[in-house]
Computed example of a mutant assay.
Amino acid sequence: MTLPLAGTTTTVTAHVRYFAAAAEAAGVPAEDVPLPAGAGAAQLRAAIVAAHPAVARVLEISSLLVEGVVHEDPPAPLREGAGEVSVDVLPPFAGG
């Protein structure tokens, strides 16, 4: 599934994979989310919630891994310039 992005030509495509409760709430295991170039995690989270309101609560407590690294600075760009980036949404889960 690809979410729509209106009014921009320079984009970052976030290949988002949802795990555990995040996948259940989103209703899809993965999707492509187009964002404006320079978009940060906050913009990605907003786009996801706009498309899947039920995922909002889970997303608030989930970690985002961008290219395999925890992304802890919401306004920092997911990547510089246009292109593609891999993002994993990992909710907290119990176990070892």
Rank of each mutant, 00 (worst) to 15 (best):
P74A: 12
V55F: 04
P53E: 09
H15R: 15
S86E: 12
H71F: 07
A54G: 11
A46P: 05
P53G: 10
F19L: 13
R45P: 10
A39L: 05
S86R: 14
E80Y: 03
V12W: 02
R45S: 14
E72N: 09
L44Q: 00
V49D: 03
Q43T: 13
I48F: 01
V55L: 14
A76M: 10
G68R: 08
H52D: 02
R79K: 13
A41Q: 12
V87Q: 07
G81R: 05
L64G: 02
V70L: 10
E60T: 13
V70Q: 09
A14S: 05
V49M: 12
A26N: 03
G38P: 12
A76W: 14
R79Y: 05
A21M: 10
V49G: 02
G40H: 00
D73R: 15
V49C: 05
R45C: 10
L59I: 10
V85W: 10
T11P: 01
V55R: 00
L35N: 01
V89W: 03
V28G: 08
A25R: 06
P36Y: 00
V16N: 00
S86N: 08
E60W: 08
V55W: 02
A20S: 06
H15V: 11
D73E: 14
V28T: 15
A26Y: 09
E24K: 11
P29K: 07
A50G: 07
Y18W: 09
L35S: 02
T10F: 01
V55H: 05
R79D: 07
T9R: 13
A50W: 02
D73L: 13
R17I: 03
V49I: 15
V89E: 05
I48H: 03
A30C: 10
V87K: 08
A22E: 02
G83R: 04
A14Q: 03
V69H: 08
V87Y: 07
G68S: 11
A82Y: 00
V55I: 15
V70D: 08
D73C: 09
R45L: 05
G40A: 06
H71N: 08
A54R: 12
T10W: 01
E72H: 11
A54K: 10
A37S: 15
Y18L: 01
G81H: 08
L64D: 01
V28L: 14
I48S: 01
R57Q: 13
H52N: 03
E67N: 14
A25P: 02
V33P: 00
R79H: 08
S62G: 03
D32C: 11
Q43D: 13
A26S: 10
H15L: 15
V66W: 04
A41T: 08
T9E: 12
P74G: 11
A26P: 01
P29Y: 00
V70K: 08
L59P: 00
G40C: 04
P53D: 11
V85H: 06
G40K: 02
E72V: 12
P75H: 07
P74T: 13
A51D: 04
D88Y: 01
V85M: 09
E80V: 14
I61R: 14
E31Q: 15
S86D: 14
V89S: 11
